[in-house]
Every structure is written in structure tokens, then in C-alpha cells.
Design a protein around this nucleic acid. Structure first.
Length: 724
DNA sequence: CGGTGGACTATTTTT
DNA sequence: TAGTCCACCG
């Protein structure tokens, strides 16, 4: 049997992992060490060498993107496609199990999924019904509490109701659960918890799946939370062949419940675990790697790993102390332009990474003014847009009248004369009779005199509209159904008359939704037993889609450090490295949280392949105030010899900024060979004026505005400039 | 019902 | 500063 294609492209450590004997294996894979390759090759190895079938594999990741990538790569290695292989996210796979076994899970057949916004609205609704003071108990906090409890596998009954604080929150949790049950909806955390409970309560099902999934593979294990760990352990059972890959140094989601300890826990739960390390890095220069190693070494409680590379040393890390955030953006953009224009880098080779979303603005403005295409990751996703959610809420209501969250959303969108009074009456009736809003509304409408005539008419029109839409569109294709709903509900007209320039965008989004529905029905393999509408709605909830449609031209990439995990770029600008911003002030108090910030810095540094540029601003406008910042401790924690401080302080920039306490190596004042404004001559570009200088010695860079070709950055050592 | 203005808040985010 | 949310008013 020829498995050279599986084995040959691997190094020794990778090979050892891929060909590990069946059993429990934990692969500690450093950044850029080829973990996805190892995982996918392992899957292919199991089929081609160990003789299992794709049907017996269970491969789990966190994001849809990673799951799609993994599936594609495994299928390519196996030369198959569309197999019965279960590759997906924790939530996607749980969803599938719950659809197949809705009865055993105690769910209605057509249950729908609440996204975070739906959940928050529902929690809020429940709190109002319970008359919980929203000022004392912020809704988001309660939502977070409920999710944290579910992520830990706890139901309201498991909580200490004697403690007044916990007791109050448990009350809301319980009421929220009741509301979900009556509406036939589940939130994200519930998908996991419900699946675990279902399997625990139905040992015949558990046995079936344990036999089926003889081989379990998990990516990014350091990001698993309590319930995900339980889920895995339950499905894998004591016998399964389990192959997990993770990196404790890249655990950056502790704040949303991820438990790095699960790596250790796995080792102690399965004492025969074979631990393997992938430490050879194929991504970054040795300079970048050394910096990353030095930084992360300051964390305690590491499982221990030291990355190395056979690659080149590369350039030193550039550090720029900006005067303020505009200066920071100016520096980054100028540097990036010179990389693109003079060194031929693609725009998409360059990433600007920051700690918090708000920082993107200055960079966007600077990029915009220079007409450089860019793309910001994060922000509102397609299926999260209000007009899209409104449209989907109509569909949800058509699929399931008891979906009270959906009803609340659209009963008066567009406005149809059902005001708060009427809605309050409906809510009251629903609470008293312990039924869904739809049923309560129908009841009120049917009993004469229960509502004022006007309200009753309006309500009747709404109830009739939904019933009619449901009946008339029942046999339509999804896209046609949606089209009909948008027109007949007047939602499209409502969205269109929004008198802002956003109205056009919104209409286009609705069209996009119709297209999405059409494509979905065409090429999605819809699981048996799920009608297309239910499947589409679940898809919309589980895969919120991209933030920006299309836009796949060559763009500079802007994103938070969190969203950069798993990606790599030839050039990385790590910006806003100031105490209070990064590490964020909310994380500096607790050692554990500070270490997570440090891991975040580690993730950022290791995204860079060739060149890493760090910046911080000595002054920054934050929340409308001017804040003075000092360099982040993460800068000071890097070996000074790897860092080259770029100082533009030739002159003018401003008094008092030349020597900063955060500066490296005592901030030697640069000796410039050329002064600003001086006229110089270049062999190729002709004459020009010196605009700016950075650094000193042979590494110094000089910006010259050439008469013929405009402004360019030149490296002093190669430029051979002469005074005119 | 929709529009306005005051209060409040401001890490990270996937599913 | 800027964006969101909500209460109140016409």
C-alpha cells in the first residue's frame, strides 16, 4: 500500500503523530507547526492504513470555516467527496444529533435555534415578566450567566437557590428555560447540553454512536469548554481512538468559558494518553519566533514547548512609538504602501492587528484617504442584520406559530397598528394560560370584547396574514416562499422606505437572502427528515455568514487579534501596544487574565511570516479624552536585540516626545545624514525632497518625494542618495 | 406610531 | 467621542 503522499510531506514529529498507534493521542502543536496537516493526514491514515471507513470518523472543530477546510482536505487525501463522514463544529454536530433524535431529546420536531441576539431579547422579556430590575441585573449579565451555567453543564436545579444573588439569577434561568420550551427553541449552549443529556439518558443511542464513531479527532482542543469536554468524553467513551490537537499557548478564549485545563484533564482521564509535540515552525523567521518564545516563556503553568525553525533570521522587529493614533496610522499606512509599491507585496499579504475593534477606525480613515482597498473582519454578519432577521422571523413563525421570539419580532414590523397595549394584553394572557404568544393572541382575537375593536382588527389581520402565508406558500420552493412573504407582509416596502441611504443596502440584502435561499435548496444536502425551511433557518442560525458580501479583491486585512488566530501573513502590523489597551486594563489585575493577554500577544506575533512591525501611541484619544500611554509591557518583555526602534524624530514632530520611558535601549537620538526638506538625487528616481526619516545607520529608511515619481520610502544603505 | 433627546457605556466572539 | 437604548412627547 502506498501512503507516501500521506507521509512524505511530513517531518519526523508530524509523522510520528500521524502514524501513532490507535488509542489516545494528544498533539501539542505550536503555532505554524502544521497541525491541520497532521490532523487531516491522521484521518486519511486511519482510513487508508488502519482500514476504518470515513463513516466511522468523527472530526470536530469550532468554526464552520475550519470544519469546511478540514472536510475538504480529508476528502482530497482520500479521493472521495460527499461521504457519510461526520466533520463539523460542536454545535453543528449536536444540531444534527438533535434533529435525528428530537423525540429522545424532548424537543418538538421543528425546533429552531436562537442566536445570541434572539436569546438576549428573550431573556429580557422573561426578566420583565418576572419584574426583575434591569438596572440592578443587566440583561447581558444574566444572558452570560445562563450561558456560563449551560457551558458548565448546569441546570437551574443544580444551583444554590439559598444564595440570594445566585437564587435570583437561577429564577431567571428557569423562567427562560420555560420560555424556550414553550416556544420550541434552543440556544447555542442548549444544543450542546441537550445532546449530552440525551445521550446520558438513552444509553442505546450512546452505544450506537460510540460504536459508530470509533475514531474521534478534535482540533483546537484548548478552546473546549466544560460541556464540550463532557460531550467528547461521552461520545468517545473509554475505548475510542481519540486524536486531539491543541496549543495551550494559544488559549485566548478563557473569558468565554474555554478551559485550557481540559488538555491536562484529558491526560489524567485517559492515563494511557500518548503526548506528542510539534515544535518545528514553518511559518516565521527565527527573529519572530525567538521573540514569541521569549514572551510566552514568562507565563507560568505551561505544558511547555519551544518552537524552532530552520528558516532565516529575517529582519528585526520594527517598533514605532507614535505621537498619537493618527501618527500611528500614518506610519503604518506609509510603510505598508512602500511594501506594496516598492517591494511588490500583495495588499492581502499585509495585516493590521489590534486588540479591540474600536481601533480599526483610524486605520480605515487613513486607508480610505489614500484609496487603498482594505477589508475589516468582524462586525455584523449577514444573517445578523436586522432586515434579514425580520424576514427570517416571518419564516420561523410560518414554520412554528409557537415561536414567540419570532412573533415578538414581527408582530408590528412593519407597523400594522398592534401597539404595546395590545402586545401587553397578549403577553399577560400567555402568561396566565401558560401558552405561547400566538395561542394567546388567537384566543384574545376569538373572544369578543377582549380587545378594543381597532386592536382586534389589527391583530386579526396579522394572524390571518401568517396563516394565509403558511397555507399558500407551503408547496413553494424556499426562494419563492421568501419572495412571497417579503411582499405580502410588506416587509420589503417597509425596508425600502427607510429614508436613509441604507435603505438601498437593505433591499439588496433581502435580495441576497432570496439568492441564498435558492442556492441553499439547490446544493445543500439537506438531512433527511428535515424540511427545507427548517433546514434553511437552522443554517442561518448556525452559520451567520460573512460580514461583507463579495469584496474579494486584493485587500489589506484589518482584524482583532482574536480573529487572526489560525491565519498567517507575510507582514503583520501589531498596533496599539500600550498599557491599558493591550494588555487591556480590564485584564491586568488578575494574573490569569494577564497571562491570557500575553498569549494573545503571542498569537499576534506568530501570525507574521517575514516581517513584524509593532506600534504604540504616546497619546491616544479614547472615549473622547486624550489619554497618555506608555509602551506595553509586552514590548519590554521582548529581547531588545530583536527589536529595532524606528524613530521618526528628526525634528518637528513635537516637543517632549523624543525620549519615552517605554523606549528600547535608551532611545538613542538618531544621527541623520539628510535633513528634512533637503533636496536629494537618486540614480533612478531623479531629484526629490526628503520628507521623513526613520531609524539610523544602514537600516534607516528615508522618505523622499521625487519630482517625477512621487513619494517613496528608501532604505538608506541601498538608496545611494546624494545631496543636490 | 414615529421622532427626538437625554442617559449611559465603551475587550476580545463563535456557535 | 459616538453609538445605542429607552422614555416621553406630539
Amino acid at each position: 500500500m502506498d501512503v507516501s503522499d500521506l507521509i512524505d510531506p511530513l517531518n519526523d514529529a508530524q509523522r510520528e503523530a500521524v502514524a501513532a498507534p490507535l488509542g489516545r493521542a494528544l498533539v501539542l502543536a505550536g503555532a505554524g507547526s502544521g497541525k491541520t496537516r497532521v490532523l487531516t493526514h491522521r484521518a486519511a491514515w486511519l482510513v487508508r492504513v488502519e482500514g476504518t471507513t470515513p463513516y466511522n470518523l468523527l472530526a470536530v472543530t469550532f468554526t464552520n470555516k475550519a470544519a469546511a477546510e478540514m472536510r475538504g482536505r480529508i476528502e482530497r487525501l482520500l479521493g472521495i467527496s460527499g461521504s457519510g463522514m461526520w466533520v463539523g463544529t460542536f454545535h453543528g454536530l449536536s444540531h444534527r444529533l438533535l434533529r435525528l433524535h428530537w423525540k429522545e431529546a424532548g424537543l418538538p420536531q421543528g425546533f429552531q435555534i436562537l442566536d445570541s441576539e434572539d436569546q438576549r431579547r428573550l431573556v429580557k422579556r422573561v426578566m420583565r415578566d418576572l419584574e426583575v430590575d434591569e438596572n440592578r441585573w443587566p440583561v447581558r449579565q444574566l444572558q452570560g450567566f445562563i450561558n456560563a451555567r449551560k457551558d458548565a453543564g448546569e441546570r437551574p436545579d443544580d444551583l444554590d437557590s439559598n444564595d440570594p444573588y445566585t437564587g435570583q439569577m437561577a429564577r431567571v434561568y428557569a423562567a427562560y428555560e420555560a420560555a424556550c420550551r414553550s416556544a420550541g427553541v434552543v440556544d447555542f449552549a442548549e444544543l450542546m447540553l441537550r445532546t449530552v443529556e440525551m445521550l446520558q439518558n438513552h444509553l442505546e443511542l450512546l452505544g450506537h454512536y460510540r460504536r459508530r464513531f470509533a475514531h474521534v479527532l478534535v482540533d483546537e482542543f484548548q478552546d473546549t469548554n466544560g460541556i464540550q469536554y463532557q460531550w467528547l468524553k461521552l461520545l468517545a467513551g473509554p475505548e475510542a481512538d481519540v486524536f486531539i490537537v491543541g496549543d495551550d499557548d494559544q488559549s485566548i478564549y478563557g473569558w468565554r468559558g474555554a478551559r485550557v485545563e481540559n488538555l491536562q484533564r484529558f491526560r489524567s482521564d485517559y492515563s494511557d494518553t500518548r503526548v506528542l509535540r510539534l515544535e518545528q515552525n514553518y511559518r516565521s523567521t527565527s527573529t519572530i519566533l525567538e521573540a514569541a518564545n521569549a514572551l510566552i516563556a514568562l507565563n507560568s503553568d505551561r505544558l511547555g514547548k519551544k518552537l524552532w525553525t530552520e528558516g532565516e533570521q529575517g529582519d528585526p522587529i520594527a517598533l514605532y512609538a507614535a505621537f498619537n493614533e493618527q501618527d500611528e496610522a500614518r506610519f503604518v499606512i506609509e510603510r505598508l504602501v512602500s511594501l506594496i509599491d516598492d517591494q511588490g507585496l500583495a495588499r492581502s499579504d499585509v495585516a493590521i492587528l489590534y486588540r479591540s475593534n474600536a481601533q480599526s477606525r483610524t486605520f480605515e480613515e487613513a486607508l480610505l484617504s489614500r484609496r487603498i482597498p482594505y477589508r475589516v473582519y468582524g462586525g455584523l454578519r449577514f444573517f445578523e442584520r436586522a432586515e434579514i432577521k425580520d424576514a427570517l422571523a416571518y419564516l420561523r413563525l410560518i414554520a412554528n406559530r409557537d415561536d414567540s421570539a419570532a412573533l415578538e419580532r414581527v408582530i408590528n414590523t412593519p407597523t400594522r397598528g398592534i401597539g404595546n397595549r395590545t402586545l401587553e394584553a397578549i403577553r399577560l394572557a400567555a402568561r396566565e394560560q401558560d401558552v405561547s404568544l400566538w395561542r394567546a393572541a388567537s384566543g384574545l382575537f376569538a373572544s369578543h370584547g377582549a380587545l378594543p375593536a381597532r386592536a382586534a382588527n389589527a391583530l386579526g389581520a396579522f394572524l390571518g396574514l401568517i396563516d394565509r402565508l403558511a397555507a399558500e406558500t407551503a408547496d413553494m420552493a424556499l426562494a419563492d416562499q421568501l419572495e412571497t412573504v417579503l411582499d405580502r407582509s410588506s416587509l420589503r416596502a417597509h425596508v425600502g422606505k427607510d429614508r436613509s441611504e441604507r435603505a438601498q443596502d437593505k433591499l439588496e440584502n433581502l435580495d441576497e437572502l432570496i439568492t441564498a435561499a435558492r442556492n441553499f435548496q439547490q446544493d445543500a444536502q439537506i438531512d433527511e427528515g428535515m424540511d427545507p425551511l427548517t433546514a434553511f433557518l437552522s443554517h442561518a442560525a448556525l452559520e451567520a455568514g460573512e460580514g461583507q458580501a463579495g469584496a474579494w479583491e486584493d485587500c489589506v486585512q484589518l482584524m482583532t487579534l482574536h480573529s487572526a488566530k489560525g491565519l498567517e501573513f507575510p507582514v503583520v502590523f501589531l498596533v496599539g501596544l500600550e498599557e491599558g489597551l493591550f494588555p487591556h486594563r480590564m485584564s491586568v489585575e488578575e494574573p490569569g487574565r494577564l497571562e491570557e493577554e500575553r498569549r494573545l500577544a503571542y498569537v499576534g506575533i506568530t501570525r507574521a511570516r517575514q516581517q513584524l512591525v509593532m506600534t504604540y501611541a504616546e497619546r491616544r484619544r479614547l472615549h473622547g479624552r486624550d489619554e497618555f500611554g506608555i509602551a506595553s509591557r509586552f514590548i519590554r518583555e521582548l529581547p531588545p536585540e530583536l527589536v529595532d526602534e524606528v524613530r521618526a524624530r528628526f525634528s518637528v514632530t513635537g516637543p517632549g516626545v523624543a525620549a519615552s520611558q517605554g523606549g528600547m535601549a535608551g532611545a538613542v537620538a538618531p544621527e541623520a545624514e539628510f535633513g528634512l526638506g533637503e533636496r536629494v538625487q537618486h540614480s533612478r528616481f531623479g531629484e526629490g525632497v526628503v520628507l521623513d526619516c526613520e531609524g539610523n545607520g544602514p537600516n534607516a529608511r528615508i522618505q523622499v518625494n521625487f519630482d517625477a515619481v512621487g513619494a517613496k520610502w528608501l532604505v538608506a544603505a541601498y538608496a545611494n542618495l546624494e545631496r543636490v
